[in-house]
């Protein structure tokens, strides 16, 4: 077990410190630094837990760059990707992560199946549970749906996005990308820009970055900021001011349905005032990183040239996505009872 530095414990609840001191020898089934059964939210994750997962993901990232990427850590385990909402990269990323660890992976796109026949979420969960999976990865359009499902099944549940609530693996992969590029997360100025109100990516990142001691800035028009936004970071409605001196610029996707109407008047105006272009980028630190969870709307929240900029780490984020998901799968699977 690696030594926990006092600075990493900042903000940790006392109970978590005790937990760190107990692991791993006291509870043989608990896998070192991460002893949760599910990964549903980033809220409440400690710096120690996050750092531990990132260390594991770092190793996975190395493995992924080898010719032989496959291990048998999850051999015999069944992973179900249960997606109630369309997804390309997250689903592919989980599928690949599971397969590289040797699990049997099944993809279910429920939007096109039993939900349309009127089955409730809980019935779907019970049906799947009867098939005895070990891990279910769930994405759902309603906030809280994944937690509800987790209460009804016997296996591990990973939240792959629930409404505007959380998307934990996205925040972990973002933290990993930052840490690998900058060597640390603590103390960095991270500007999260765009539609904060409807973004599960923003909520997850705010939790993880704050836990790791980054200085979080939240930038967006007032209509796209959550109430009491100042509770989550330093709030800017002027992007020029908000981006000044930033180490990391994290752009968010603007959902198409928000572009026309009462939240913001048009994508043209949004790009003018909140889109990342060269002029605004020049205000950030010279070595600032550009991030985006994807899929991008080029010319809406990010200029096309900026998306392909040398400081853009958008493709690294995708690579780290697989690594982080391998780490999470490994951590959760190891905690499963081994009967």
């Amino acid at each position: 077990m690696r030594l926990v530095l006092p600075c990493e414990l900042r903000g940790c609840a006392i109970s978590h410190i005790r937990l760190v001191l107990m692991a791993p020898s006291d509870t043989p089934n608990t896998y070192a630094g991460f002893s949760r059964r599910h990964l549903l939210t980033c809220e409440g994750l400690t710096a120690t837990e996050i750092t531990w997962l990132l260390d594991l993901a770092d190793k996975a990232a190395e493995t992924n760059r080898q010719v032989h990427k496959k291990s048998d850590l999850l051999r015999g385990r069944t992973l179900i990707n249960l997606f109630f909402e369309a997804s390309t990269r997250t689903q592919a990323s989980f599928e690949l992560a599971g397969k590289r660890l040797g699990a049997d992976v099944m993809n279910m796109n429920v939007s096109a199946s039993s939900v349309q026949k009127g089955e409730t979420l809980i019935d779907t969960a019970m049906t799947l549970n009867a098939m005895r999976p070990d891990i279910i990865v769930v994405r759902h359009h309603a906030a809280g749906a994944v937690e509800l499902l987790s209460q009804k099944v016997d296996c591990c549940v990973i939240n792959a996005g629930d409404g505007a609530h959380q998307h934990p693996t996205q925040a972990l992969l973002d933290a990993l990308t930052i840490r690998r590029a900058k060597g640390r997360v603590a103390g960095l100025v991270v500007a999260i820009c765009g539609d904060i109100l409807h973004s599960r990516v923003a909520r997850s990142n705010i939790d993880v970055l704050n836990a790791l001691g980054a200085r979080v800035r939240i930038i967006g028009p007032s209509t796209l900021l959550p109430p009491n936004a100042a509770r989550f970071g330093e709030v800017f409605t002027d992007m020029w001011a908000g981006i000044a001196g930033a180490d990391i610029i994290m752009m968010l996707r603007l959902q198409n349905e928000r572009m026309q109407g009462s939240y913001i008047p048009s994508s043209r105006e949004f790009f003018h005032f909140f889109g990342l272009d060269q002029e605004k980028l020049d205000l950030a630190k010279p070595d600032a990183l550009i991030m985006h969870p994807g899929p991008m709307n080029r010319g809406v929240e990010i200029a096309s040239t900026i998306a392909d900029h040398s400081r853009s780490v958008i493709r690294e984020q995708v690579e780290m996505g697989v690594a982080v998901r391998m780490a999470v799968l490994e951590a959760l699977a190891r905690n499963l009872p081994n009967r």
Partner: peptide
């Protein structure tokens, strides 16, 4: 009365 205009521009 349904969609706001481009106040900034």
């Amino acid at each position: 009365g349904t969609e706001i205009t481009e106040f900034g521009l």
